[in-house]
Design a protein around this nucleic acid. Sequence first.
DNA 1: AGTGCATGCAAGTATTTACATGCATGCATG
DNA 2: CATGCATGCATGTAAATACTTGCATGCACT
Lengths: 211, 211
Amino acid sequence: MEHPPIDPSLGGKAEEQETREKILSAARQLMAQKGYKGATTRKISELAGVNEVTIFRHFKTKVAILEELLKDILDVRQQLEQGIQGEYADIKQLLVNYARTYFNLLVDRKEILMICMIEADNQPEVVKLFSSLPVTAVDVLCNKLKEFEEQGHLPKGDPCTAALMFISTFFYAFMAKYRVNVDLDIEEEKLFENASDILLQGINCKKTTKQ
Amino acid sequence: MEHPPIDPSLGGKAEEQETREKILSAARQLMAQKGYKGATTRKISELAGVNEVTIFRHFKTKVAILEELLKDILDVRQQLEQGIQGEYADIKQLLVNYARTYFNLLVDRKEILMICMIEADNQPEVVKLFSSLPVTAVDVLCNKLKEFEEQGHLPKGDPCTAALMFISTFFYAFMAKYRVNVDLDIEEEKLFENASDILLQGINCKKTTKQ
DNA sequence: AGTGCATGCAAGTATTTACATGCATGCATG
DNA sequence: CATGCATGCATGTAAATACTTGCATGCACT
């Protein structure tokens, strides 16, 4: 019923794109909440504001919608590595920045991540997609910490566990906020900062750090 | 078809209890994997090795099964507090012990926790049940750390974030292992210990701690 | 004016699913 | 032996669900 703005660069496809996007968006939202089975094609069509048949004109089957949605998780490593490459005043600033980058990546993909989590056992490939984000985040951070250790900027330790703890913290904060709606009683920026402090100094350590 | 061993203490109810338990166990397993909708009464009956009708002789409706399952999460605080009360050689030992206690509590309830996570948006009360475990774990640990700070065993800091980081680590490890089947490349006991070390000393700190 | 294309609407189909009913079986206990 | 009780089995039902088909509408572009 809606018609495309006259935009020659899009050809005649603007309308099609729009409905397709509306369907995908509605499906993403519903599947994240209710799971694949809970997101019926009827509900999707209602939320998208289109007729149910229209869904099947755009997607051969319901799983095709899911498969389309799942394409959005990939290529995360690059963004994470970018967030860790720049110049920072000190390691703490790097950590705070990395925490923010990672948390925002999670939030940007929250619906798809939820779908993967919920559907983990029904769609096996989904597992890899889901886990790839935190696993990559741990890996990238771990490598950076190792680098610091080799350069003498950090004492030798267990960078993998450290990275795991750091990433876990924001993974949990993310789940608490967007899946379970628990209030953690701490602002995100404050959490990034305090967690970075604790990761660096621990809770039992005098603050005697250089730089 | 099976008949109860002659056990007067159980009266004539042993048989009934047994099938009931078989149904609950099958439902727990399936719902944790496939979600509430994915666990059809037919599949439950097959896994339980009973006839589908038998399910409805024991439970009025399918949700009644779910409700029954959800009763198992409660009363966690007591167990967590017990695990933190005893005498320990040093704070690190206390942390390692607490980590183990918490992780085991998660593992013991893994199916129900997964169900809660998956069904979070469909069964609203479920959310509270699910979140209660990590939230309580953070709370109990946070209180203990505050106590240490007041007694001068730890410098003043941010015990809440510290507790959150610690609990998050094992929450993530738990999810990785039991939901996503990711191998973290570290044994659990080792993880408990290394995480405790890092929480206490950080990664940028000379080991000059009294305990 | 005419053609194509995306969509809406009404109706239908085959399957799945939660749940019901009636009947038969077999053990246990009085 | 008789009664009760838990279960199996066959069958049924009403709703939901993924997906189909046929037809009408209205905009866009030629």
